[in-house]
Amino acid sequence: MTLESELALYRQRITTDSYPMSISEIANLYKDGEIDIHPEFQRIFRWSDSQRTQLIESILLGIPLPSIFVAQSKNGIWDVVDGVQRLSTIFQFMGILRDEDDNLLPPLVCGQAPFLSSLEGVTYQPAEGAAAALTRPQQLDFKRSRVDIKIIKRESDKRAKYDLFQRLNSLGSVATPQELRNCLLVSLSRTHFDWLQDISSSDAFQKVLNLPERLLDEQYHLELALRFVTLRTLPERRISSIGNIGDFLSGEILPFTEKSYSDLRGEQEAFESCFTLLNAALGADAMRKWNPSRERTEGAFSSTAYEVLALGLGYHLPKRDCSIEEVQSARQLLWSDPKFAPGFATGMRADQRMKKTIPYGRQLFSA
């Protein structure tokens, strides 16, 4: 295939339009429910106070903003692909931003700004706790500021939206790769995001992982749930060619959103069976290294334990019964095996480790 033919093919996959809109026009679309900025993103991650203040300052100074990218849904609603944080900041400053439960959020009070020292403590309209508010002329200037809107039309395919989201957001201020995947999931299928969040919040799963608060804040439990779903039955020939695990998981987001309700029910059954059993057998020590000589667990969460015990057990469930004693015995065998002696995974890339751990775990639980 020539470059020209490839260009023709991929240009057909995505149809766009572009035009500038005033902040006032965009705010009216938001108030009328005609633009979806995904309020749940605010729970996943958000800009710092400094970043938000700098955006308001830029608008007041007349500095052009980067384009906002939206995807037109089947019902005509604009779904924000890139620009959620910018629009959320603008709407909160104007006092119209609502959360997931449709509750009005407190208006944004600007912090210390790089150029406009008098902007600190200022709100769009007079508000409790604010030092001052914009004057009427300043409000009008703010509302009349224009933003370029790039529209991905409804006839564009889902893959094009996925690719665009990744390209636009991969260099943004998302704190962790999983937070980007979460936002991508919400953008592509809220149903699948809610499902993943639901299973990762289960009591048994949380107890088995026993993660510190920092990793929970970074959404690592969602990443581990996604690893379970994408790696549990992955053919061994593919395990050996995973490459970078982060890139692999991001690449699996689109196929994951195409899973049917029946597929999700099957995955949830395996997930719940696996972690209920691990919790009953090993509890909060399940994912820690077992020291056979001292007969106790040591250290923090172990990826090796997760890949061998959780993914190994999950591979066979719910097709076969497995006892608490069998799980306990499997942990003993894992940490007594010289192949997984202390230092086994030190300095080893995740994909290189998984070539050994995942097949080992599947064999360990094969009846």
Rank of each mutant, 00 (worst) to 15 (best):
S88A: 14
T89F: 01
M94N: 04
I96F: 08
D99Y: 06
D99N: 15
D101F: 13
D101C: 11
D101E: 15
D102H: 13
L105I: 00
L105K: 06
P106M: 09
P107N: 04
P107I: 05
L108F: 15
V109H: 09
C110H: 10
G111C: 11
G111V: 11
P114G: 07
P114W: 12
P114Y: 10
F115P: 00
F115H: 10
F115W: 10
L119Y: 11
L119H: 08
L119Q: 06
E120P: 08
E120L: 02
G121E: 13
T123S: 05
Y124Q: 01
P126T: 02
E128T: 08
G129N: 03
A130W: 11
A131W: 12
A132T: 12
A133R: 04
A133I: 06
T135W: 07
P137Y: 08
P137W: 05
P137S: 07
P137A: 05
P137L: 09
P137F: 08
Q138Y: 04
L140W: 14
D141W: 05
F142S: 01
K143Q: 15
S145H: 15
S145P: 09
V147N: 01
V147F: 03
V147P: 00
D148F: 14
D148V: 15
I149D: 03
K150F: 12
I151T: 10
K153P: 05
R154L: 02
R154V: 08
